[in-house]
Design a binder for these strands. Structure first.
Lengths: 160, 160
DNA sequence: GAGGGAGAGCGAAGAATATTCCGTTGCCGA
DNA sequence: TCGGCAACGGAATATTCTTCGCTCTCCCTC
C-alpha cells in the first residue's frame, strides 16, 4: 500500500503538518493544537511512525555556521557497459558522507547528486579523488550553488 | 561570525551528530551518549539553538505514502532585462509550497528548484499555470526524478 | 604562591511531560 | 437489540525536563 493518504483523517494531517514544522514539540502541546487528549495524540503519532508516514526526526543544522561554505549539484552520466557494476558504483556513491542526495533522473545525464563540502578545495578533492575514480563514470557536470533561496523538507500536505 | 565551528568542542559536535540522526531523542538519552549530566547537556543544546547552529527540528515524512509520487528538478533561466523585478519573482517562487528547494546556481541556467507534487499531472499544472506565467522566465528545463537513491539532511561533521 | 572570579559540571528537587491502564462512548453488523 | 470494535478521555504512574545551588578547575592578578 504505497499511497495510503486516504486512510489519514484531518487530525492525522494536522499532526504531520505540525511535526514537519517543529519535530521537537511536546506531546501535550501537539495535543492542544489538534484538540485531542495527550494519550490519543500520542497513539496517533506512534501509529504514523509505525506505518511509515513519519520516517524519522532530524535537527536541521546551519551549514555555513558549521563550516560548509560549498554546496554543489553534480550531474553524472554513466557508461552503460557492464551494467551489472552500476549498482555497486551507486552503493559506493551514496555511502559518501559528502553526498546528501542522489537521484536517478531523466535527461542528458543519468544521476544528480547534491554535495556539501567545507570549501571549493574540498569539493575539488571530492570530485578528483572520490567521484571521478568510480568505475563507469562517463562524464560529469558541476553546478556551484551561489545562494540558497529556499531549503525545506516540508511537504505540501492537503488542507485539513 | 559565519564560520564558528572552531568554537565547538567534541561534545558539541557529538550532540549535533546525534540530533541530526534523531531529533526527538530525550535529553536524558542524549546526555548518556555524550557522557554528560542532563542539565549540562540541555544547556549545550540550548546554546547551540540560540547561536544558530541548530536552526530547527523536523519530522521527515514519507513522500510516496503521502501521495507525492512525483519529484522534479527544474532548471530556470531568467531574462536579465528589468532585473529589479527578479527579486519579486524569486519571492513568489519560493513562496510556492510545491517548491521545496531553490538555488541560485552557476552554469547555463540561473536557478534550480526541486518540486514535489502528487503526480505528473499536478507537475504539469504547476509548470503551466504557476511557473511559466512568472514574469521574466526565459526558459526552463525539467528533469523528472525516476528514483531517490539517497536523501538526507545529515551534514558530514568532523570526527569528535 | 595565594586569592578570587568565570565557566562548566553535577546532584537534588519540584514541575512538567510521557505513557500506561481502564472505563466510556459511539458506531456498525449480526 | 445486542455484542464487538475502535477511538477517546481521565487518572495514575513513570520518566523527563528544568531550575537551583554547590563544587571543581582553570586562569588571571596581585
Amino acid at each position: 500500500m504505497l499511497n495510503s493518504v486516504s486512510s489519514l483523517d484531518r487530525t492525522d494531517i494536522t499532526i504531520l503538518r505540525v511535526l514537519q514544522a517543529d519535530g521537537r514539540i511536546s506531546n501535550v502541546e501537539l495535543s492542544d493544537r489538534v484538540h485531542l487528549s495527550p494519550p490519543a495524540t500520542l497513539a496517533r503519532v506512534r501509529r504514523l511512525e509505525q506505518e511509515g508516514y513519519i520516517s524519522g526526526y532530524a535537527a536541521m543544522l546551519n551549514r555555513e555556521k558549521l563550516g560548509h561554505d560549498n554546496l554543489a549539484l553534480i550531474e553524472i552520466a554513466l557508461e552503460l557497459h557492464q551494467h551489472e557494476r552500476i549498482a555497486e558504483v551507486l552503493d559506493r556513491l551514496v555511502a559518501m558522507p559528502e553526498v546528501l542526495e542522489c537521484y536517478h533522473v531523466t535527461g542528458e545525464y543519468d544521476y544528480m547528486i547534491k554535495v556539501s563540502t567545507v570549501n571549493n578545495r574540498a569539493l575539488d578533492r571530492f570530485i578528483a579523488t572520490r567521484l571521478i575514480p568510480l568505475p563507469g563514470i562517463a562524464r560529469i557536470h558541476t553546478s556551484i550553488v551561489l545562494k540558497v533561496l529556499k531549503q525545506t523538507t516540508q511537504l505540501d500536505l492537503p488542507e485539513p
